[in-house]
Design a binder for these strands. Structure first.
Length: 482
RNA sequence: GGCCCUGUGGUCAAGUGGCCUAAGACACCGCCCUUUCACGGCGGUAACUCGGGUUCGAAUCCCGGCAGGGUCACCA
C-alpha cells in the first residue's frame, strides 16, 4: 500500500487559529497512525497579505504542540521547496499545459470590466459567473494581446452541463450541478498562481494522498477534480472537517479573542489540555476515554469517527479539562507557572509561594484567574458583616463578636507563626470555650479574609497573611462589627 | 437568493432498523467528606427539530417544511 502523506498548508497571516491547529492535529494524527508522513507547506501566493514573522508563529505553535512535520520549509524534504512563493516558476508551465489541452484559456478581461459585469448581474438579481468571454478569442487575437503585453489571467474551462460528484471520507457522496461551476482563475495577473491552482499542483507534486481540510472547500472540490482529471493525475482522498464554532451560529472569531491559539496560552491554558480538548471537538474515540496523550491520540484516531455536524468549542468544558491537567501537573512545574500570576497581586510581599501554590493547585482552572482568587491576600475586601452568619457552622455576627476577642490573645501568644502552631493553639482553646469548631473558625476566616470562600481554611490563610497582618485584620473586623 | 452540508439534553456526544422506558462527559441541582471553597464520592433534572411516508417495528431509511452553517474573488 502507498505511504500516506498528509499536509497542513496554512497561509501566514500572523496567527494560528484554533481551527487551524485542529486541522493540523488531525492531519498529523492520521499520518502518524498510518505510519505515513506529515508535511508542512506555506501557502503565501497572496503577495498583498504577507505578514512579517508570520511563518515563525506557525512553526512555533506547531512545534510547541508537538505536531512535528516530516517535511517542511525549514527542514526540507524530497519534494521542496515547501513555500509556494519559492515555487512560483513551477505553476505557469502547468497552466500552459492546460491551455494546450483546451482545459484552460487566457483571459484578458480587466478587474474593472469584471466588476462592472458583476454589478450589472447583481442589479438584475442574478449571481455573477464568468461568462467565458475570452474563451472564444481566436488564436491570433490571443497571440496579438500576449505579444502586446496585455495583462492576462488563465482560467479553467469548466463544463456547464451535467454534474460533478466525489466521495468524501466524512461526508460521503457529494454532487454538484456543473452549471454552478465558475471558470476560476488559475494564474493571476501578477503571474502568481491562485490558491486553488497551486494547491492542486503542490498536492500532486508532493504526493499528498489524503487532503484533510476545512469543509469550506467542500464546494470547490469539484473544480479541483476537474484539474486533476485534466492533467490525468490521481485524485487524493478527501477528508473535509467541520467548522469549529463558538456557538450555534458563530465561528470562533478574532474579535471575541477566542480564536487564536496564543489567546488561550496567554490566558493560562495548558497546551496539552488545549490539544486534548481540540481533538474532541468534532471527533470522538468511540469509547468513554476523554484524556489523551498525543501518543494515545495517534493510536485512537480514526477518520471514520469524525463528525459531520459542526462542533462548538465549549470553553466551560475546556476550563474543566484544563483544571484537570493542572491538578495532575508536577508541583514544581505548577509553582513555576503560577509564580508570575502570584506576582501580579503579591509582588513585593513576603509570601510563602510554595504553600500558596499547594493550596491553589487544585483550585486553578486557568492561570489567569489566579489573581482574582488571591487578591484578598493583599487588600482586605470591604465586606458585608452579614457573611459572618452561617447556619451550619453555627456562626453569626454575635458569635463573631464573642469569639474574635477570645481568639486575639491566643494568636498574639503564638511565637513561631507556623500553620501547625496556629492550628494547635486555636484547636486547644475551642473546647474550653464550649464552641464547635465551625463557630470559631468560620468567624476567624471571615475576619481575616473578608470572603465567604477562600483558597484554604482559617489556619492556612492566617499563616499566609503573617502574624501582624492577621492580628490587624482581626481587630479591624472586630471594629467593623461594632 | 442559487448550490452544498448539518439537525439526539444548555454544551460535547454514543447510537448505523428491534439490545433505546436513548450511554458517557461538561454545566446545573442535591447529599456525603470537610474549619470555608476547591478536590473527591454518590445521586438527580434534562434530548431524538417538525410533518409526511417506507416497515411488523425508526433517533436510525426516504420526501418536504423549518432552523443553522458553508460557498458563490485575480483571498486562502
Amino acid at each position: 500500500m502507498k505511504e500516506v502523506r498528509t499536509r497542513f498548508a496554512p497561509s501566514p497571516t500572523g496567527f494560528m487559529h484554533l481551527g487551524g491547529v485542529r486541522t493540523a492535529l488531525y492531519n498529523y494524527l492520521f499520518a502518524k497512525k498510518m505510519g505515513g508522513k506529515f508535511i508542512l507547506r506555506i501557502e503565501d501566493t497572496d503577495q498583498e497579505r504577507i505578514v512579517p514573522g508570520a511563518v515563525d508563529v506557525i512553526y512555533n505553535t506547531l512545534r510547541e504542540c508537538g505536531l512535528n512535520w516530516d517535511e517542511g520549509p525549514d527542514i526540507g524534504g524530497d519534494y521542496g521547496p515547501y513555500v509556494q512563493s519559492d515555487r512560483k516558476s513551477l505553476y505557469l508551465p502547468y497552466a500552459k499545459e492546460l491551455v494546450e489541452k483546451g482545459a484552460a484559456y487566457y483571459c484578458f478581461c480587466t478587474k474593472e470590466e469584471l466588476a462592472e459585469r458583476k454589478a450589472a448581474a447583481e442589479a438584475k438579481g442574478e449571481v455573477f459567473k464568468y461568462d467565458k468571454h475570452c474563451l472564444h478569442l481566436s488564436k491570433e487575437e490571443i497571440q496579438q494581446k500576449l505579444d502586446a503585453g496585455v495583462p492576462y489571467v488563465i482560467r479553467l474551462n469548466c463544463p456547464t452541463e451535467g454534474e460533478s460528484s466525489y466521495d468524501d471520507e466524512v461526508f460521503g457522496h457529494i454532487s454538484f450541478p456543473n452549471s454552478d461551476l465558475d471558470d476560476m482563475v488559475l494564474i493571476k495577473a501578477d503571474g502568481m498562481p491562485t490558491y486553488n491552482f497551486a494547491n492542486v499542483i503542490d498536492d500532486h507534486l508532493m504526493g499528498i494522498t489524503h487532503v484533510m481540510r476545512g469543509m469550506e472547500y467542500l464546494s470547490s472540490t469539484p473544480k479541483y477534480n476537474i484539474l486533476y482529471r485534466a492533467f490525468g493525475w490521481e485524485i487524493p482522498t478527501y477528508v473535509h472537517l467541520t467548522t469549529v464554532m463558538r456557538d450555534k451560529e458563530h465561528k470562533l472569531s478574532k474579535r471575541d479573542g477566542d480564536a487564536y491559539y496564543s489567546d488561550f496560552i496567554d490566558k493560562g491554558y495548558l497546551k496539552d489540555a488545549l490539544i486534548n480538548y481540540l481533538a474532541l471537538v468534532g471527533w470522538n474515540p468511540g469509547t468513554d476515554q476523554e484524556f489523551f496523550t498525543m501518543d494515545e491520540l495517534v493510536q485512537a484516531f480514526d477518520v471514520k469517527r469524525l463528525n459531520t455536524s459542526p462542533g462548538i468549542f465549549d470553553v466551560t468544558k475546556l476550563d474543566w479539562m484544563n483544571s484537570q491537567y493542572i491538578a495532575k501537573m508536577d508541583f514544581e512545574d505548577y509553582l513555576k507557572m503560577a509564580t508570575p500570576w502570584f506576582d501580579k497581586v503579591l509582588a513585593g510581599k513576603n509570601m510563602d509561594y510554595r504553600r500558596l501554590a499547594e493550596l491553589m493547585q487544585s483550585r486553578t482552572d486557568i492561570f489567569s484567574r489566579i489573581p482574582e482568587k488571591i487578591a484578598f491576600l493583599t487588600d482586605m475586601p470591604d465586606y458585608d458583616t452579614a457573611i459572618f452568619f452561617n447556619k451550619k457552622q453555627k456562626s453569626s455576627e454575635d458569635v463573631a463578636k464573642e469569639v474574635l476577642p477570645l481568639l486575639l490573645p491566643v494568636l498574639k501568644g503564638i511565637g513561631d507563626w507556623t500553620e501547625q502552631n496556629i492550628h494547635d493553639a486555636v484547636m486547644a482553646k475551642i473546647p474550653e470555650w464550649g464552641k464547635k469548631n465551625g463557630a470559631v473558625l468560620w468567624p476567624m476566616r471571615i475576619a481575616i479574609s473578608g470572603q465567604e470562600s477562600t483558597p484554604g481554611g482559617a489556619f492556612e490563610i492566617a499563616y499566609l497573611l503573617g502574624k501582624d497582618e492577621t492580628l490587624r485584620r482581626m481587630k479591624a473586623s472586630l471594629e467593623k462589627l461594632g
